[in-house]
Amino acid sequence: MTDSRRQGALGLALVLPPLLVLIFLIIVPAVSAVIDTLHPPEGAGWTLTNYALILGNRVLRSDIRFSIVVTLAAVAVTFCLSYPLALYLRFTKGRLPSLLAVLFTIPLFVPVVIASFAMITFLVNHGMVSTVLYRMGIEWFPPLVYNATGIVLTEVWTTIPFAVLILGAGLQAIDDALIDGARDVGAGPLRTFVSIILPLNATPTMITLTLLFIGIFGSFTIPYLVGGNAPQMLGVTMTNYLTQYLRRLDAVTIAVIAFLIAAAVGALYVVSVSRRERHAL
């Protein structure tokens, strides 16, 4: 009895320092900003008109849709590239995997502004790739930057290391004996992957997907530098509403909506992990 209460108190005490930072620097300002959006533009009282106005705006709806679609696309591409990479690094030995292990971490150390700039010089029309192709006789070049494609490519470039590391760490935790055991009873590679690896690596997978989504969804720099004029990712839209269109309340309302979407994804993660923990031994 006392022991679990002591554990509870200790737990809370240890969690307190970062929690205080979170409360005073994010939660309190955020709550006061949300309260602002629940008042109508003029006068007092509570109302959801601000949200109705934003969601009723066709262009803003398309920005929201665009953000979600681009984020999902970027998460999917990153995931589909990273998981095989992580698997390969986990199960293969040799020169090539060692080189690969260094290669995939490189984007980690490049600041996002520089990564965006590098991508543009590389992929823009009359940039590196198109010049090489032009010299080889291929004159047509698809527009790869200043649109959704550019955003997805750059986001993928910057997030591959993160995904591979987290997934890889999870894969390391899977004992070889399990894999060998599966092989011994005749399971093929796909079967092993689906029945053994995927479930055991579930938590890192969920962490990766969640953090990828939240990070990409709210990003500003990459869409600002590499994106097109419209539709825009919400990070850019919000900034424009605040600084260019001088509509602070609208900017905060959009911020709350963006937050709710990101929070929903986070909640999905927590729910899925909790369910798994309940099923664990």
Binding site: P18, L22, I26, I27, P29, A30, A33, I214, G215, G218, L234, G235, M238, T239, L242, A251, V252, A255, V256, A258, F259, A262, A263, G266
Partner: peptide, 12 residues
């Protein structure tokens, strides 16, 4: 702690 990164700072 998700909220630290999920809530856009512009509004704050």
């Amino acid at each position: 702690f998700l909220s630290a990164n999920a809530f856009p700072k512009i509004g704050l």
